[in-house]
Computed example of a mutant assay.
Amino acid sequence: MAKKHVKTNAIRLIEQQKIVHEVFEYTSENGEAVDGLTAANKIGQPVERVYKTLIATAGKGQYFVFVIPVAAELNLKAAAKAVGEKRIEMLAVKELLGLTGYVRGGCSPVGMKKLFPTYIDETAKALDYFIVSAGKIGMQLKLAPTDLASVTNAKFAPVIMSE
């Protein structure tokens, strides 16, 4: 019998849209967040396929979601340019739950309290699938980057630091 997954908002939305996906689960110490590299290892997936969700702000009421490779760093200048702002900064962790409905380490780009402008790093365009948080620590969601872009109205843009 197939194992039943806890349904997060992200998984419910993906299923409602009839998007082909797979859910991976892993355990973490005391239910605490792990970094993306550890998550990739725990689910047995290549690190370059696992992406993290970051929230940035350009001031009161202006929030942006960025989906980037877990091993990469968000380039704030490139991200600001992508969203058409002079300057943006990372959202304080203490504001994350109230704004998105998700906790650090379990923040999915899908199913936030509100649909914010979303940008997926352009490296994902070359992938047939990638993995993002499913909206809970210990759960990851495998899907096509184009499907994620479709469900979140995301744009692809160069937003990570160059190597």
Rank of each mutant, 00 (worst) to 15 (best):
A78I: 02
A78C: 02
F116K: 01
A80Y: 11
T100P: 04
Q45C: 11
K77Q: 02
V20C: 10
N9E: 15
A2L: 05
V83N: 11
V65H: 10
A134C: 14
L76S: 06
A124D: 09
K155H: 07
K42D: 14
D121H: 01
S28C: 13
G44A: 04
R49Y: 14
V93N: 09
N75W: 03
F130S: 02
I131S: 02
A79K: 00
F24I: 11
S108T: 01
L99R: 09
Q140Y: 05
H21W: 10
N9S: 15
G106R: 10
T27G: 12
D128G: 07
S150A: 14
M112C: 13
E85A: 09
K142F: 08
H5E: 15
H5D: 10
A92Y: 12
A144S: 13
K81R: 14
I43E: 06
S133E: 14
K60W: 01
N153H: 15
M139P: 01
A39L: 14
E85D: 00
I19E: 05
P109H: 12
P69M: 12
V6G: 13
A154R: 11
V23E: 02
K4V: 15
A78H: 10
Q140T: 01
K52L: 08
M139K: 08
A72G: 00
T38Q: 15
A126S: 11
I131N: 06
I120H: 11
A144F: 04
I120N: 03
T27N: 13
K86Q: 08
N30I: 02
S108N: 03
A58S: 07
E89W: 00
L76F: 14
I68L: 05
E25R: 02
A126Y: 13
R12A: 05
T8K: 01
M90H: 11
G138S: 02
